[in-house]
Every structure is written in C-alpha cells, then in structure tokens.
Design a protein around this nucleic acid. Structure first.
Lengths: 155, 155
DNA sequence: GACTCTCGGACAAAAGTTATCCGAATTGAG
DNA sequence: CTCAATTCGGATAACTTTTGTCCGAGAGTC
C-alpha cells in the first residue's frame, strides 16, 4: 500500500478540526513531509471529491462533507485506487493442459478466496470514519496540545 | 501483493494431487511460467516448511503435510512475508507540533484501524485450506480433465 | 562414476513508488 | 486594476521493489 495513504488520512483528520481552508504547504510543514509530493496526494483526494480546494490568497483545502461521512476506505481508494491487491492472471488458461477460455465462465477458486478476503478488509475499513479517528485522537491527547495545534493552523 | 503468490497456490494444489515428487521444471512448464523464477518461490515455500524437496533422479517437490493442514495464508506469508500492508511511519512524532516519543506508548488511531483490517483479511485467508481449493477445483472441472492432468504429471 | 536435480546467490531488467520543479490559471486584497 | 498568494497539472528524475535470468556448488539416485 502506498505511503501516501497515511498522509492523506492525517490530513483529513487535521482538516476536520480546522475551521478555515488550510494550504497544502501548511499541511506539509505540519507533518514534515515533502510539500510537492503531498500536493499530489491532495489532488487525488480532490479528484475523488473528498476535499475541495479554493484558490487565491486565503485558499487551501477543506473537507467537502462532514468527517462522519468520510470513511477510511474512501481515503484509501482515492489515493491507492480501488483495485484489489490480488489480481488473477488466469494461470489455468496457460500451459499444455490449459482449460479453454470458454470454459472459464466462473472465476478460479483462488481468485474467489482472495476476493472474499479483500471484501473483508474493505468492509472493516468502511466501518470507520474520519470522525471516529478524530474522536480517538481527542480522547487520548491532552486538550492543551489540541489547542496549540489549532492555534498553529490559524497562524 | 506479489504475483508469485498465485503461482505458489497453484503449485500447492497440483502437488496435493500428485502422488510422487514433482520437479520444479515440470511445475513451471505446466503453468507456463519462468522456471528460474518459480524455483525461487518454491524455495520460499520450502524454507517455510510447507513443501520439501527431494534430490536426485526422481526428485522434486512434495507437500510436507496434508492439504487440509495448509492454509492459503500460510502460502501467502511464506512468499510475501508476514508483514502487514500498512506500516505506520509515526507522523505524529514529526513536524513543529510533534508529540514526544515518550508520549507515544499506544499506536496511533490510524495504525490501529489498519491493523484491525489486516487482521480481518488474514483471518479470512486462514480459514481456507489447500484442500478446500482442491475440492472446489474437482467439483467444477470434468473428471476426464483431472485424469489427463494426473497422467501428464507422471509422464 | 555419471547423471539429474535442488539450492543459493549474484546479477539484470522492468515496474512502481517517491519526490521535485515549473508554468498556467484563479482568486482575494490593496 | 494590479499584485501577491495559491492551487492545478504535467513533465521529469531518483529511488525502491518486483520480476526475471543465469550459473556454479552440492547432494542424491541409478
């Protein structure tokens, strides 16, 4: 899985706490990552409709919906794509004993098992929203630190 | 996920049906894949203790246990390694508002969510054995074709 | 003793990931 | 209206992982 997913999730958490648009450069500085590369991840989030960018002097990124309506899976699929980790190369249709393609109407058992596992993985991630992450963060970190973060974002 | 996983699973299915050791070259020809590269995957399976190689003229690979005692996850972890797809880079310990390392005794919420999804994925794959795959294959393919496969392996 | 086979590492090519930079377009403030 | 700040998108390069090949050493069988 792409490392950009982690950045994207952190950005969404931060964005849900900020009341105003946050420039990409600020998000990069906050997380101490390359701002050029983070920009690319944010563009992916924007293309997926999870965030919106406003141009101009006071521009930046904002979530398009409530944090409780954005799942972790949404972010992952926006950045990494929705394609499953396993892709069947139809080994059974190759080699000296290849079964003809017209017989392969159903996916091979291996692909089926992998697809089921992939569904379980996605289902687990679909059940968690950005709001859940935020709740977890604000529960485990002291309020004073959260205030400092908000102040830093405004500055 | 590495493409070699698919080959490894197919090989285990074939091996469970063959009564005698099958050389790596034969497995490669059967699946029409590079024999040098497949050899590497088989070595990984061997190192993990799933298959055993016998040397000499009638040598080849054999499963070390019953197909019902080898899970799909066993094969995946043997070839791809047991490391989870997501690895937390501890973003919270970086940047101007970094939380000190001594405060990070518990994993960050994002890592926790990812780990839970990873467990769900692995649990799903741990529940399926090579024997299940074999049963599925022998149920969906005509007996005549299975006999041809067995005959080809012996030759 | 000759043959067959596996083992393991070294090595090369291809693909994907990570990262950088620059110009164009857009918006808000003076 | 003009200027400064900002995002957007593409082109590009460095790096890492994956994929694939090759060959010699060692071990077993006939």
């Amino acid at each position: 899985m792409s490392g950009g997913v982690e950045w994207g999730l952190h950005c969404c958490v931060v964005l849900s706490g900020a009341g105003a648009p946050v420039p990409a450069a600020k998000l990069a500085e906050l997380h101490d990552v390359s701002q050029s590369y983070l920009a690319k991840q944010l563009q992916l989030l924007s293309r997926a409709g999870l965030v919106r960018s406003s141009l101009g002097q006071a521009g930046g990124y904002v979530l398009t919906r409530s944090a409780s309506e954005i799942t972790v899976l949404d972010v992952i699929e926006a950045i990494d794509g929705a394609q499953p980790a396993f892709r069947c190369t139809e080994v059974r249709q190759r080699g000296p004993l290849a079964t003809p393609a017209e017989r392969c109407d159903t996916p091979c058992p291996i692909a089926r098992v992998m697809a089921a596992a992939d569904r379980a993985w996605r289902e687990s991630l679909r059940g968690i929203t950005i709001a859940d992450l935020v709740a977890d963060v604000s529960r485990t970190t002291p309020a004073e630190q959260l205030d400092r973060a908000r102040a830093w974002l405004r500055a």
